[in-house]
Write a protein that binds this DNA or RNA. Structure first.
Lengths: 220, 220
DNA sequence: CCGAATTGTCACTTGCCGGTGAGTAGCAAC
DNA sequence: GTTGCTACTCACCGGCAAGTGACAATTCGG
């Protein structure tokens, strides 16, 4: 056997840097792994998301990911569970003291809130990009968690306000949400969308204005 | 040396199937490679898009891809060049005999045409998904080719019609296009978007109706 | 006919991936 | 102590990716 640890020459701690003395704490390690996974996904995207990369970033052995989460799938599921609380953390529940009298008022406000929240959250952005790029079990689970959270939020915010008669609000809102998501993704990836530059705050103001106009156009 | 070809036993053409006698024709091979690349990208997505996969599908050695296209980048560039002709093949130039009197008429029609065209073209769909998922040199080139083609088409179709005063048409149109793209991508990946099912023709009719309503809402 | 360029094939290196089996280190109860 | 459990690490496997250099097969100019 080469490198038999029993025969390894100790070298008297020569240039040995801190052995780091990792504390043995399963809970902490699990958290570290989850955190590493989320930040990796947020920063690098799903392309470079894998067992090895997560383990490297978490500073532990990949074996622990198998043990604690049952592999990548389990880890993704854990991320999805976290995701359920996204809206809560990101978007204010109250409407900032303003009274929303009409469905149009509401949707205008929600659209802008959603736009802001998405712009501020790289992790969810990556997940949305993932959703439209692949159709694996992993993605489906994440997607489901996200859409459920989103639907809940919409429902809660809607309160008792009803959409105007004769308008398919589900379809219209889906299109508005689609627009926001794609706008933010495009901007994130290339700084523009369909000829519209989306880099400076001024750019985003123009986009927001146009978005408001569109929402007002349908809902009055 | 194992398997030295000079010592290989000829086995008298035993179960030897057709040696296939590939004709030596560089032009044909180049076309085959390009075609393989496009179909691979369209069917499998950018995830599994690589030198080896393209070569396998084209039925030739990957070396030829390096020789003829200078690697994946060159190949992607060739795809981008093809892409410039996308609109020409996909979308009718004339407006089907109808007279478009207002900018609203025009944009309603163009939105629906664009929606249809994108729904029918898996390759461009994959490219759009790629655009929002990565920011590499390859993607930038493809993206540029596509957006240029799109802008040209829009410009040509617009003719002399001017958007209503006081409306930022560039921004509004970008949002509409974003919505369409994300709608189609979502549907393609998961059969739905933000709670709106997008599977049956009936589903799509609802979406189209909502889209029309939105466009009409802004442009009157 | 011959040599050279073109066209196509193959074997190989290197590197990273997911996954697994076997082993080590700390910590408590007996 | 030593026994046993848990947390953790390591070495290794097979597989597939990109990329490269050498070689075989064909065609063409002279």
């Amino acid at each position: 056997m080469l490198n038999d640890p029993l025969v390894l020459t100790p070298i008297a701690g020569a240039t040995r840097a801190e052995p780091e003395k990792r504390v043995r704490d399963r809970g902490a390690t699990e958290k570290a792994i989850l955190k590493a996974a989320k930040s990796l996904l947020a920063e690098e995207g799903f392309q470079n998301f894998g067992i090895n990369a997560v383990a490297r970033r978490a500073g532990c052995d990949k074996q622990l990911i198998y043990r604690y989460y049952g592999g990548l799938n389990g880890l993704v599921e854990a991320i999805g569970a976290d995701l359920g609380t996204w809206v809560k953390d990101r978007i204010p529940e109250d409407t900032g003291g303003m009274f929303l009298l009409t469905y149009g008022d509401l949707m205008e406000r929600l659209s802008l809130l959603f736009l802001e929240a998405l712009r501020d959250d790289p992790l969810v952005r990556r997940i949305v990009a993932w959703e439209v790029s692949e159709n694996t079990e992993q993605v489906r689970r994440l997607s489901e968690a996200r859409s459920k959270a989103l639907a809940n939020w919409l429902e809660r915010m809607r309160g008792s306000l009803a959409p105007p008669k004769g308008i398919d609000a589900v379809a219209v809102n889906a299109i508005v949400i689609a627009a926001i998501q794609h706008l933010v993704l495009s901007a994130s990836a290339g700084g523009q969308c369909a000829g519209l530059s989306l880099k400076t705050p001024k750019d985003w103001e123009k986009a927001a204005t146009a978005l408001k106009r569109i929402v007002r156009g349908v809902y009055g």
